[in-house]
């Protein structure tokens, strides 16, 4: 069915869309404005001159690259750990029968809603006592508290959507139970696994509170707390510099968003709302 474009709706929608997108646009514009132009009494919408000096400064004069590397290691490790555990766990929750399974599923959903601030003090004590405080490892552990329930819940609904007949067929055709999992379930769940992995990565990339509490040295500091440190430590807040850092910090998200938007929105429905 071919639909005519809705002109009136377009005229209503686009100004709102632009208003919503404006803060991000302003971030971009600010990041390429020469410093002098920034503090003029009548700000210009479009910069008169474009400069990349702020980007150069972020990358060379600040520990930004160190933070970026930390965030990358942190988000990637969290994703790998969480996905490996939750793929097996979700499969077990969906396809096996044993006592306590339903209770466990409810518990997972419950922990998915649990506020981080409740866990933060005990986690801090625990990580200090096992000597992991101030390391990236401590953050990976802390991040599983929210990423694992989330990934389990998401993957559970993805896997529940795979027809059980496929595994039955594979087993009749000669596969063992785990063979059927590898040959049939994993390939079928792949879009869901990708979507869950992307979400986990984004969650870990954006996390702030645990990073604030558990890490206080540049060696292990991720971007979120790192960039805020740049704001706080600066005597005179350099907005252009911060906007350039913000843009750079968002680059991985923009890449994920540009290439995997379909995965993101499908995962969204599966995990958050449909239950």
């Amino acid at each position: 069915m071919k639909k005519r474009p809705a002109w009136i709706a377009s005229l209503v929608a686009w100004p709102i869309v632009l208003l919503i997108a404006f803060p991000l646009l302003w971030m971009l514009i600010t990041s390429v404005k020469p410093a002098a132009e920034l503090f003029s009494t009548s700000p210009t919408l479009l910069p008169k001159a474009i400069t990349f000096e702020h980007y150069v400064r972020v990358l060379t004069d600040t520990p930004f690259l160190q933070y970026f590397a930390n965030s990358m290691i942190l988000a990637t490790s969290t994703t790998i750990v969480v996905i490996s555990i939750s793929v097996l766990g979700a499969y077990s929750l969906v396809r096996f029968a044993y006592p306590g399974r339903e209770t466990l599923a409810s518990l997972v959903l419950f922990t998915y809603l649990l506020p981080s601030v409740v866990l933060i003090s005990p986690l801090y004590l625990m990580l200090v006592s096992i000597g992991l405080a101030n390391t990236l490892a401590s953050l990976v552990i802390a991040y599983t508290t929210f990423a694992l329930p989330y990934a389990l819940w998401l993957l559970r609904s993805f896997m529940a959507g795979i027809p059980q007949d496929l595994e039955s067929a594979a087993m009749v055709d000669g596969a063992s139970r785990m063979g059927a999992f590898v040959d049939v379930v994993l390939p079928q769940a792949l879009p869901g696994i990708i979507s869950t992995a992307l979400f986990t990565f984004i969650l870990a990339w954006n996390e702030y509170l645990y990073a604030l509490v558990l890490v206080n040295s540049d060696e292990a500091r991720p971007l979120t707390t790192g960039v805020m440190t740049m704001l706080i430590s600066a005597f005179n807040i350099e907005w252009s510099l911060l906007m350039a850092a913000s843009v750079l910090m968002s680059v991985p998200l923009i890449i994920i968003f540009a290439f995997f938007q379909r995965h993101l929105t499908s995962g969204f429905g599966a995990g958050g709302v449909k239950g």
Binding site: K3, R4, P5, A6, W7, A9, S10, A13, W14, V17, L18, I20, A21, P23, L24, W26, M27, T30, I202, W205, N206, Y208, L223, T224, V227, M228, L231, W239, L242, M243, S246, M249, S250, L253, I256, F257, Q261, L264, T265
Partner: peptide, 30 residues
């Protein structure tokens, strides 16, 4: 609705959700 450039509009509208709160806060404080 079938608005013009719908998928671009969708992307622009959805993006803030995926942005780090730190970035959102910096932008808005500015």
């Amino acid at each position: 609705q079938n608005i013009l450039f719908r998928s671009l509009a969708r992307s622009l509208v959805l993006f803030p959700y995926f942005l780090s709160t730190v970035v959102a806060v910096l932008v808005w404080r500015w």
